[in-house]
Design a protein around this nucleic acid. Structure first.
Lengths: 219, 219, 219, 219
DNA sequence: TATGAATGAGCTTTCATTCAT
DNA sequence: TATGAATGAAAGCTCATTCAT
């Protein structure tokens, strides 16, 4: 006899469209409260160790309520990551490209430091770094909607800088990641080592940009 | 026990707790096999989701045997992280400082890329990044024994470079992290996004060093 | 983004071959104790409402122990049904066919009443009747290994009886179920209505056989 | 609540508890729709596993609405069983007793096969068989209002048949169940085994009646 | 009367840890 | 030293029932 689920018990049927009144005023607020609480718990304990019980308590709802808004723990986690960063990417993409390049890239970096690194959104990125490998779909989403878009925007700026002669290192066009690397380093450092050796990420970033925009040797 | 009680459980030095004949030939081999298997499992699933059952099976021992060599899951995890990187730091610290600085720093970076980034040791670092916050003692150990020592060695090189005039950006002395940032970026990228956009970390690092050592404008 | 289980969490890997020392003396005893307790609980409350907690308590083991011997609740249930009846079918099939048919069939029926109907095995059949529809694999197993084999054995007897002229109703060859019908009726009745109107199933069965073997009108 | 507390909860007569406008046109229609939907769900999944959510959806009402018409899940279930068979018993009791007995009993059986076995009412009986033990009040109701009345009516017919000499097996008076046994067998068989070996219940029943009315040996 | 969001007790299942052998 | 059967605390998830609207 082959293994087989009890016939009448196939629960596939209900798509369990997370409803729970997401459209109503209160529904949306509750959903947001749950996501908010979940960010705290996931950031503090990691995906596997975070308890939905705690998320519920923190959000001020009953445990079952979470399931009115999210299919399961994983869906809650993915939604959390999905909704917190994308909006800011749009802002970054919309940044103007005219004016001195140095100022543009600096604004880009400052925006990132101020609006992400120093907010709870930093935890979202840390979560992606920590759990991304176990959630390939999430890693892919993050790559396409956040990383790629941000890097593409950056690349465009760099390209202009190179054409204008403001940036001498053409390799930056191929490796826009080099611009962001100190910020990622800062994200990690502040998360893990800041209590041993505080790091002024903004200052480090300025030093970094000084290098990028360093006037080259006159030929 | 199911709940992990990582935070604050600083097990600073483990007074050589239960050691299953670490001194005997076979004992040491078994211990190593367990650590090895544990690295695979922890890297693949994360600390909380890795099962000691799987570690045991992979190491070819019985589940109970793990407890002859390690106090508990957390001790196994911390030991794992403790033993895998420190030896390489010594090698890095021992690197010679004479000769052209560019070559020295490049050797430093190449060593890191070849001996860490492209080996299973990269997973150890990824584990520290992912779980470090939940294991303060581990983060502290990693900072003191790996990060700080590597950065200090690097800083010494940079200092020399600045004094000799080979490095123009003096800020690098204050932020030696800037040198390593692309490597960390590479570590993360290869772990998460390589399948979408492969990144040649060594090439990126070379481009990065080109910037660091860029001769400034002659006054 | 498509739904997708966390990568490292694919639990498919372990076939979870129920081991738990089933081969050892004690292992087999424990397994039997669990099956025994499960029969009581499933019979009393039905599959869905039976609690593994109660099964464990009744079997004198911890809850987790059940999972050393059975994959999950359903596997326990199916195993229970699988192991309790088949052995008796062999006995029935082995019944001799020589001698007066009436005696043979009566022995067949008596065996069934005594060894099944009046024992806890009756509950196994009641469970199949009650839950079979929701466990198609189980229904199929029960049909092939119990019902079909028993009816085939019966049919052979009837065939002989018809050939010898001891049974006048040839339709019985086509509907051997008619022989068993009162026994099934008795099984149901004793399970549900006996407290309102006790039914002497053995006597009823004898009356039934009187009809089956009734000598026809002499022409 | 998750635990069902069926046994002993004899809710003998329900003092017309919460009735959601059963008298109004729409109220009665809604109540009927709920009962109808409930039959489907209970038949498919069993009492414990059926979800009121699904019943509500199938009935086209909100979940809470069910509670306007029925006290709780159990009351809905019992009401369902109570209302579906009793009306047909009246029809059976009213069947005329004059004319050849064979025709009378055959009509009785045919009515049962056609009006119960081949309709959704068969599922109601299957539900009683499957769940009756856990709902003593229900079993008792079913016994008094269905089983006993049907058997009494049958017994009366048999009595007449015996007196008229149309039925030779006087034991049938004591065991009217023997007449119905093949129908119960058919009910079970069609529910569980029909896909493996289709059973023509009507034909089987005719063969059965042939035996019952078999003219005995002339003395 | 009708709704459906919200609740929370209760269930199955997992797995780190122990301990008799 | 080594084993692996046994344990039992936890945690994710479900669903009957309630109640504000």
């Amino acid at each position: 006899m082959t293994t087989q689920k009890p016939a009448g018990t196939s629960r596939t049927r209900r798509p369990r469209a997370p409803e729970g009144g997401e459209r109503t005023e209160k529904g949306a607020a509750r959903r947001a409260a749950i996501l908010d609480a979940a960010l705290d718990e996931f950031a503090a304990r990691g995906f596997a160790s975070a308890r939905l019980d705690d998320v519920a308590r923190r959000a001020g709802v009953a445990k079952g309520t979470i399931y009115l808004y999210f299919k399961d723990k994983q869906a809650l986690f993915e939604e959390l990551v999905r909704t917190n960063l994308v909006p800011h990417i749009a802002a970054i993409e919309a940044m103007p490209t005219e004016g001195p390049l140095r100022a543009r890239v600096e604004a880009f970096a400052e925006h990132f430091v101020r609006e992400v690194l120093m907010t709870r959104r930093a935890d979202v990125i840390r979560l992606v770094l920590a759990e991304g490998r176990r959630f390939p779909a999430l890693a892919e989403f993050h790559y396409r909607e956040v990383v790629q878009r941000a890097l593409t925007a950056l690349q465009r700026l760099i390209q202009i800088g190179v054409e204008r002669g403001e940036i001498r290192h053409e390799a930056l066009v191929r490796f826009p990641q080099l611009v962001m690397a100190p910020i990622m380093m800062g994200l990690i450092w502040t998360g893990l080592f800041n209590r041993f050796a505080p790091l002024d990420v903004a200052a480090m970033m300025r030093a970094h940009l000084d290098m990028l925009f360093a006037p080259g040797r006159e030929p």
